[in-house]
Nucleic acid binder design. Structure first.
Length: 426
RNA sequence: GUGGCUGUAGCUCAGUUGGCAGAGUCCUGGAUUGUGAUUCCAGUUGUCGUGGGUUCGAGCCCCACUAGCCACCCCA
């Protein structure tokens, strides 16, 4: 259908059928974060461009070609946030939340990246972010992984997700390894495939993930990150693995797992599924001990993850784990002189008497057949009927729509409330 | 940013060598004047993604654009 106005590419409307599923998912995310003692923070969608350049890294794809960046009226360069961690750290520093204290935080909201849209990849997408500041041991790394795992269990999708785990070493170790790897790759530059040549200088660690056969053979002799790890890094990673094993969380070691944002060190992890095609990472994160200092704070250990809400909802839908709930419990209908007024009063009366019920009043008139069809379509459990005789007597006729055999009852208002309560509880 | 496939009624989709724009579903009314399913009858579905071109004539052929899907890439 051709329309003169349409949404910006890659930015989707969520319609009633979608929001019903999203609300269920969001509820479980909030409750689980709260159950682990985490507190919500809300940051602006816009930040100074500078923040993302410093936090994410100047040469990453996200900063180089995916940010929505523009100048405001005063000429300052602003960007829509492409991820949440940078803004979260900024907020913590600005309000001294992490001065000599630890914080366990979460947030939820839209992020923006100018990528080519695809299934599970949109220009406006939504993340649950979880960030912990001030704790440097593997116990907290394990905790946030356990938090994510608790989510999969609550959603009933734990079997469909695999935990991939790796360590990048300290930033110093990683830097030395990176230089050594680049040196190695440059020495074999002419024999590498095209992708790997490009990555040698943009994202050298990702060359290790090359699917090219010839490159794979060359990489057999490449320096290995494990050989560059110091005893502390080794101990941190071993400690994490032990804690996960103790908690019964299965993981796969994946030394090609690198992640694209520069701020990560030590632990990195991803929860992946093969049920979503090419965009199979539902949740990913790791440790970023250098970021707080890099943004001007005192050295503060930090760890966190991001969870792609679109991908989560897609996965839940693919696995049939979310079912649209009916939006209406009770449908109030009427016919005859004065019905509109009686319906409005009755609906108001019932909403007070049954504050948790969802009560819709039929508007627009029409015969009862039409009104019942409407109620049926909405999957309402009960109908409240106001016809000529009810209007005259001040009674309500209650009909159980989910049980064809149940006889309808004409009752005084108080008794009708009781009857409705019984139908809703059944 | 690169490549492939796709775009026809609100939805799912047919549409022949280029020759009147179609089906199912949904919706509305009726059969049943105070009651949901099914059935039957009647009725409305429309910029054929947009703009050009070829042609006597284009939903169909050609070009450009646009959007979606899939993959690469990247990441959540």
């Amino acid at each position: 259908m051709a329309l003169s106005v349409q949404a910006v590419r890659g930015m989707n409307d969520l319609l009633p059928a979608d929001t019903a599923l999203w609300q269920q998912a969001e509820k479980i995310l909030r409750e689980t974060a709260a159950a682990f003692g985490y507190s919500e923070v809300r940051m602006p969608l816009l930040e100074k461009t500078n923040l993302f350049c410093r936090a994410i890294g100047e040469v990453t794809d996200v900063v180089e070609k995916e940010m929505y960046t523009f100048e405001d009226r005063s000429g300052e360069s602003l960007s829509l946030r492409p991820e949440g961690t940078a803004g979260c750290v900024r907020a913590c520093l600005e309000h001294n939340l992490i001065y000599n204290q630890e914080q366990r935080l979460w947030y939820m909201g839209p992020m923006f990246r100018h990528e080519r849209p695809q299934k599970g990849r949109y220009r406006q997408f939504h993340q649950l972010g979880v960030e912990v500041f001030g704790l440097n041991g593997p116990d907290i790394d394990a905790e946030i992984i356990m938090l994510s795992h608790a989510l999969w269990e609550k959603f009933g999708i734990a079997d469909s997700l695999t935990l991939q785990l790796n360590t990048l070493g300290s930033s110093a170790e990683r830097q030395i390894y990176r230089e050594s790897l680049v040196q190695f790759l440059e020495a074999h530059f002419d024999d590498l495939d095209e992708d790997s040549r490009r990555r040698t200088h943009t994202n050298p660690l990702r060359v290790l993930d090359s699917k090219d056969e010839k490159t794979g053979a060359i990489l057999q002799d490449a320096p290995k990150l494990a050989d560059f790890l110091g005893p502390e890094s080794r101990a941190h990673f071993d400690g994490l693995c032990q804690l996960l094993t103790d908690s019964g969380i299965k993981y796969e070691l994946n030394n090609r797992l690198v992640r694209g944002l520069d701020y990560y060190n030590l632990t990195v992890f991803e929860w992946v599924t093969d049920a979503l095609g090419a965009q199979g990472t539902v949740c990913g994160g790791g440790r970023y001990d250098g970021l707080v200092e890099q943004l001007g704070g005192a050295p503060t250990p930090a760890v966190g993850f991001g969870l792609g809400m679109e991908r989560l909802v897609l996965l839940l839908s693919a696995l049939n784990k979310l079912q649209a709930q009916r939006a209406v419990d009770i449908y109030v209908m009427g016919s005859g002189e004065g019905a509109a007024s009686a319906q409005a009063k009755t609906a108001a009366f019932l909403r007070k008497a049954l504050p948790h019920a969802r009560i819709m009043n039929h508007c627009g008139g029409g015969n009862f057949k039409k009104q019942f069809r409407r109620a049926d379509k909405l999957e309402a459990k009960a109908a409240v009927i106001l016809g000529e005789s009810e209007l005259k007597d001040g009674t309500l006729t209650i009909k159980d729509l989910s049980n064809q055999d149940a006889p309808q009852q004409t009752l005084a208002p108080e008794a009708a409330v009781q009857a409705l309560q019984q139908i809703l509880q059944a």
